[in-house]
Design a protein around this nucleic acid. Structure first.
Lengths: 349, 349
DNA sequence: GTGAAAGCGCTAACAG
DNA sequence: CTGTTAGCGCTTTCAC
């Protein structure tokens, strides 16, 4: 980004001033289009702008803001910290909920900024500036992998944090009631008459997904007396689900009930199942997770566990504000129970 | 947010210091968990923290950052400005593309922060702080309504701006090649044998959508000699599309080809069409817009105009960085041509 | 037209 | 243990 060689100290208006032989004040007003008020000549302004550009001037927003600060206004800088690999809908739900809350609370004396910081799943520790106390007043963290959770457990971030979707000691956490999704998925399939429920998931497992798989396997074992097959696909997109199911059927796999850990995998599975000549739910019942906005419009409509994202977000955002406000006795951990949207894909056989 | 009555000046560490009878430095170190280094007694630290909480202290990040600033590090604050009502995928594409670029460019001497600011469609002018030069180094604006465009055309924001999806004089803009989506949608339907192509859209029209509708209508008129019906639904969700099409068919509307301005409307229409006993594409051909990730998995797979979001974003992000860098001769306007994903929903009748 | 100087809120270094 | 002080980068008076 900088024009000049990289390890130089950042250029300030003082250097520009020196470079053009004027005062910092002149430079400042030129840069903020107030040259007219200062009655700088157009040529002078031009010269200043060119010098700024040439030197690679980057305004220091902290300086500007500090100076411009009206002392009656409090500014809150909030952030959502999420992995690049996160499912879009969750992040955007958090974002919308946060913005809505911020919208309500913004007034003459209180302003907010919402930032999004992304890290690569499992590499949260490498995110620069995380431990700086000078960036955010509060953050919501979501979509971490176990490595990230370990890092967080040790790190103690120097600002209020709400963790979404898992329990990490010493942080405020909002998470799904454990076991619910896995257990209910198994039950729905078994109640639909499935003898051999199978689970379809991706390779990298979040805390939440692992828990769902375990609960599913345990329930299937309890209720049918046999183990559930686990099919591992190379990703969470529809095509990955389709390929995995197709291969499974091709090698003679027995399939009468499927628990897909995301709705995308489920819709991919739909395709492979139909192409093999099987019908849903007559031959194979299917359950997804996440209640994708299109789930109801799949053919047949897909039974889906609504994760509990809506509800989690609805808890997490007010929780963050309570912590920010410094309220006493804020509950450390909130458990949320997912909703089951039962649709035709798990109709009785 | 603040504890004390609202119009007070913000509390600073000086007030806390006074309140507890200590120096600002003591307060500062206590607040940043450096009490130990200062050998403050645990009790003192406790007292400071309580006072801070009680007074409703909110740290001034500008002050902290200014102080903490390493003079060899440049910080860029970027923002995406989008309406609450914006389609999720576009925003998230921008976000991801921006984060990816930022990721690459981040190093010891250059840091970035990406914020998201949302406004209510049509009310961009009411967004506070937009005209302040002390918030962002550069922003990408997307999903504005005509009212917003007018505001922008007059406002001249005091930082580099890239506008996504429309042309606004004096700004850097990246937009879809005009007419393409509307024209090609009509052609695809007509080529599939449709005699009475119909368009389905929502009530509030962005610049882009209006253009698509116009080009569609014009092409239909040119090629078939008759006007295309326009069906207006109350929203862009599947259920809105379904309801509108159902009502249209119920009142005896003639339908053999449908251009839905979003894939969500299209999938809703699918449901209504199938329920009426018609088949896709035999009886009704359907074209959507946006290339939803599930479009290929609809039944039948949906022909979709890929908007040009991917491509637009791919242009917009580097464009912003070029402007930020102060490069000369940056092209003001980039036109991007959408892709047509032709699938079974517009197969020959 | 232009420069000097004060000060936004904070923290680190230093001096007790 | 604790207080004083300087100064981060910037803009806005005020004085010339």
């Amino acid at each position: 980004m900088p024009r000049k060689s990289v390890s130089q100290p950042a250029v300030t208006i003082y250097e520009i001033a020196e470079h053009v032989g004027l005062s910092p004040a002149a430079v400042s007003s030129a840069l903020s289009n107030r040259g007219a008020e200062r009655r700088l000549s157009v040529k002078t302004v031009q010269r200043i702008l060119e010098a700024a550009n040439e030197l690679g001037y980057v305004p220091n927003m902290a300086g500007r803001r500090l100076r411009a600060h009206k002392s009656s206004t409090r500014q809150f800088d909030l952030a959502i910290l999420t992995s690049f690999e996160a499912p879009l809908p969750l992040v955007s739900q958090v974002l919308h909920a946060l913005q809505r809350a911020v919208d309500v609370q913004t007034n003459e004396h209180t302003r907010f900024a919402v930032a999004i910081e992304m890290f690569h799943a499992g590499r949260l520790r490498d995110k620069p500036g995380l431990l700086d106390a000078n960036r955010y007043h509060g953050v919501i963290i979501t979509n971490t992998l176990p490595e990230d959770d370990q890092f967080l457990a040790k790190a103690r971030l120097p600002y209020p944090v709400v963790i979404l979707g898992r329990r990490i000691p010493s942080y405020y956490c909002v998470l799904e009631a454990p076991d619910f999704v896995g257990r209910r998925s198994a039950e729905v399939l078994i109640d639909a008459g499935c003898k051999h429920p199978v689970v379809l998931h991706g390779r990298s497992l979040t805390h939440t997904t692992s828990n769902r798989l375990e609960a599913f396997a345990r329930t299937v074992l309890d209720r049918t007396g046999s183990d559930a097959d686990a099919l591992v696909s190379n990703g969470l997109q529809p095509q990955h689900g389709a390929a995995t199911i197709e291969a499974f059927l091709a090698r003679g796999g027995k399939l009468d009930g499927l628990f897909a850990v995301t709705d995308s995998l489920a819709i991919g599975a739909y395709q492979a199942i139909k192409r093999s000549g099987r019908q849903i739910p007559r031959d194979v019942a299917v359950v997804g997770v996440g209640d994708n906005e299109f789930a109801e419009y799949f053919d047949p409509p897909l039974t889906s566990m609504a994760g509990a994202n809506d509800a989690m977000v609805a808890e997490a955002v007010p929780l963050l504000f309570r912590v920010l406000r410094g309220e006493k006795d804020v509950v450390k951990e909130v458990l949320v129970v997912p909703t089951v949207f039962q649709r035709a894909s798990t109709g009785k056989k």
